[in-house]
Design a protein around this nucleic acid. Structure first.
Lengths: 157, 157
DNA sequence: CCGTTATAGTTACATATGAAACTAATTGCA
DNA sequence: TGCAATTAGTTTCATATGTAACTATAACGG
């Protein structure tokens, strides 16, 4: 009985999970596949991790954030952000200042080098997203947006 | 300017990514949130990782799989499966035999203890999935299934 | 047969990640 | 004031994960 294994007899009454129809499992596979496809584009080229890229993306959009604010915006924990920032600053991609009134807080911004990378990677990321969404028609894309909005309310600052 | 940072001026012409509307990012957050909610249920109780649980789930459904077949069914790589199996066998939750005709291959099955855990965890996992899906109405659930099917064709053995 | 190649699974190493402890600075309030 | 409680950020440590190398067995082709 080589290739195809048969499911367990139903009589056994164990009600096993059908992983391939189980939402959390499907989301996990899909998310990893999509994120990896995009990351492949820039990881080799810039030696940039996904977390580092996310930090750069929010710093491109919001100027002068602190590390904690970056953590909120990226939904990453502060340790991950701290490490990503350490690498980005070291690589000269992010500039770190200290807040005038509160010496605990950092004031972060992309450097010129950081902007160059951003301006190369952002269009690639958008193009990959379009490739994925191209598998859906317009109606399905609308539903997907609506469904994601209901499953995970977007944090509006 | 304390709480709310303002976006960068559009004139700067850098077209930053809006992470909160970027599909890969949203999928990643949603997937992690959902998986973690479920994992919390059983990780403490049984000291069981997500990968271990997935291995158990496919072994509940398909009897006598080899490690490689488990890897295919779970979309995990063979190293991850090997490690999960090592722990599961050590913990007495999975029984490992050797294939009669091919001494390289293992023949895997849940032990009695494994079944007990499975029969406790599987309903919990399903209940959590229902909680998530309860945020959607019937029509949205149908669309979600259709959309997932189009984005990631299900492997049929 | 016997050597090459392929397959199943494990081990080793390097890196990533998360929780908790820690440092430094600020805030709250008696 | 001054001291306890918060907050920002980093470091430490234990664990997880992926890639590549490795072992053992089996399949293939002359």
């Amino acid at each position: 009985m080589p290739a195809s294994r048969k499911p367990a007899p139903v009589g056994a009454e164990h009600a096993p999970l059908e992983l391939e129809h189980f939402l959390p499992y499907r989301l996990s596979i899909l998310s990893n596949t999509v994120s990896q496809a995009i990351a492949d584009d820039y990881q080799r080229r810039y030696d940039l991790s996904v977390t580092e890229w996310r930090v750069m993306a929010v710093l491109a959009r919001f100027h002068g954030l602190s590390a904690r604010e970056v953590a909120e915006r990226t939904a990453m924990d502060k340790v991950a952000v701290s490490r990503a920032l350490a690498r980005l600053v070291e690589a000269g991609r992010v500039h770190r200042d200290t807040h005038g009134n509160d010496k605990r807080r950092s004031v972060l911004s992309l450097t010129e080098a950081g902007w160059l990378i951003h301006d190369d990677v952002a269009p690639m990321a958008r193009a990959r997203e379009r490739e994925v969404l191209a598998k859906l028609d317009a109606e399905e894309r609308d539903w997907l947006t609506r469904i994601l909005d209901k499953l995970q309310p977007v944090q509006k600052p």
